[in-house]
């Protein structure tokens, strides 16, 4: 024996039939004209967004790569510049030093040569002078001697005087 069921919990066959019809209509029409295009559109949009995000990520990574490359290059360039500058400076210093050295030695050489020349000249002049002075002295002495020797008494007088002087001393 079944319970006397409250009409509230007794399914009404008419409404069940209509519900089924309504649901079928809805499933068919919405499935064909709404869910399919909407799901497709959403999937496409999501794919598009995902693609865009992936592309952006890729671009970002590339940018980062580029930037790091740039930085690396820059650092390298900077380093190179520094080394070049340093080298240049070294070269410059070396050149200056070399030049200085060279100039110094050159100058020293020139000075030495000059001094030598001067010395030589001086020596030549001195020798020349000596010769001339000797000649002059000889000539003068010759002339003096010639005049002196021409006066015989006086000579003898002088010799006498000298011998006297020697006794005094």
């Amino acid at each position: 024996m079944l319970l006397e069921i409250n009409p509230l919990v007794l399914p009404d066959p008419g409404l069940m039939i209509w519900s089924a019809i309504a649901f079928f209509i809805l499933l068919f029409i919405l499935g064909k004209f709404a869910w399919k295009p909407i799901m497709k559109a959403i999937a496409e949009r999501e794919k598009g967004i995902n693609d865009a995000i992936a592309t952006a990520e890729k671009v970002k990574a590339e940018m980062a790569q580029l930037q790091s490359d740039n930085e690396k290059l820059l650092a390298q360039a900077r380093e190179e510049r520094a080394t070049i500058l340093k080298e240049a400076k070294d070269i410059k210093d070396k050149m200056i030093n070399d030049a200085k050295e060279q100039a110094k030695t050159e100058a020293a050489k020139i000075m030495a040569e000059t001094q030598q020349a001067i010395e030589n000249q001086k020596m030549a002049a001195v020798i020349d002078l000596k010769n001339q002075v000797g000649n002059l002295v000889v000539e003068v002495a010759e002339k003096v001697l010639r005049r002196e020797l021409a006066n015989k008494p006086e000579q003898e007088n002088y010799i006498k005087q000298l011998t006297d002087e020697i006794k005094l001393n």
């Binding site: 319970l3 006397e4 069921i5 409250n6 509230l8 919990v9």
Partner: peptide, 10 residues
């Protein structure tokens, strides 16, 4: 509640 409803008419 539904089971309570089954037996009587509220």
């Amino acid at each position: 509640v539904v089971v309570s409803l089954l037996g009587n008419n509220l």
